[in-house]
């Protein structure tokens, strides 16, 4: 360790810390102020309100629905993406003809802004003019058009599917990185000991991939929990709030209905929720490692 100048590390850290703190903490403080104030529909403060805004959010039946769906949405996408990405990464790690092309195809959704992806899907899912229905009809999979976005029973699963699709590239990339960091000697040794591929997977690949899985889970949870464009561009949380998650509900509350106080309270509650999850997960993950 260098100990020449005790202030040196602080000097090095300072520019980044100040910038991040300014852009992140100051708005956070603002939210705290707004959420405990009476606010008019244009965000102008009109006096102290205590916890009224928090109570209002808690007692709104739409909040509970959105909270519940957010959990389904987040877990569905995070674990869906995990389930797809792990085998895909294993395959892409193998040597086969066209691997480069396959890797590029799998990464491709990453190159498109999620907003645009969502807009394209919305168009593709259109009941009469959408190419998904017409494609499925051509393949004789369906014979009448499905109105994908008409009810939550079809819309929400499709939205989760889109979410998985845009989450896979990042996850696969992490896993590929992980697989390439596992030394080939270990596999060689396992092969010499005559262990089956399944055993190799259980004894070597899976345990060594653990930290990569953990990273993917934590980062994806943060991204997916806060993800707005997919649901907004396809259904705006409808019909009848049945595809609302907390973020879309927050947007409606704040910018459509002009309840900025409640929206700020909800923002902070969402932040707390995410914080609690992350701490819990990091704690569980590190405990497992120690065991």
């Amino acid at each position: 360790m260098q100990r020449t100048a005790p202030l040196a590390p602080y000097a090095l850290v300072m520019p980044g810390f100040l910038l991040a703190a300014f852009i992140v903490l100051w708005p956070l403080y603002q939210l705290g102020v707004i959420s405990t104030s009476e606010v008019n529909r244009f965000g102008q403060l009109r006096g102290f309100a205590g916890l009224e805004n928090y109570v209002a959010v808690f007692t709104d039946p739409d909040f509970i629905g959105a909270l519940w769906r957010t959990l389904i949405w987040t877990f569905g996408i995070v674990f869906g993406a995990l389930a797809v990405s792990f085998p895909v990464a294993m395959i892409l790690h193998e040597d086969f003809y066209g691997r480069g092309v396959a890797r590029v195809i799998v990464m491709l959704p990453w190159a498109v802004s999620i907003t645009m992806t969502a807009i394209v899907w919305r168009w593709a899912l259109n009941g009469e003019s959408g190419m998904l229905n017409s494609g499925l009809k051509n393949l004789n999979i369906i014979d009448t058009n499905i109105q994908w976005l008409a009810q939550a029973a079809t819309a929400f699963p499709v939205q989760i599917m889109i979410g998985i699709l845009v989450t896979v590239p990042f996850t696969v990339t992490i896993f590929l990185g992980g697989l390439s960091s596992i030394s080939g000697d270990l596999y060689e040794a396992a092969r010499l000991e005559g262990s089956s591929p399944l055993q190799t997977f259980r004894k070597i690949t899976f345990p060594l991939m653990r930290p990569f899985v953990n990273i993917a889970v934590v980062l994806n949870t943060i991204y997916v929990f806060n993800s707005f464009p997919i649901i907004w561009a396809t259904t705006q949380g409808g019909p009848a709030n049945s595809t609302d998650i907390l973020v879309t509900y927050l947007y409606k509350l704040g910018f459509r209905f002009g309840k900025l106080g409640e929206a700020s309270a909800l923002s902070l509650m969402m932040f707390a929720l995410l914080l609690a999850f992350t701490i819990l997960y990091v704690y569980l993950a590190s405990r497992e490692v120690r065991e």
Binding site: F17, L250, F271
Partner: peptide, 29 residues
């Protein structure tokens, strides 16, 4: 490369900023 007192704090600070989505902060921003 350095060992200094605020290291733990800075790590936590980074994790927390990572968790805040712009949409949550948009009014303040």
């Amino acid at each position: 490369r350095f060992d200094f007192g605020a290291k733990g704090f800075l790590r936590q600070f980074l994790l927390v900023t990572q968790m805040l989505s712009p949409i949550v902060l948009v009014i303040g921003l």
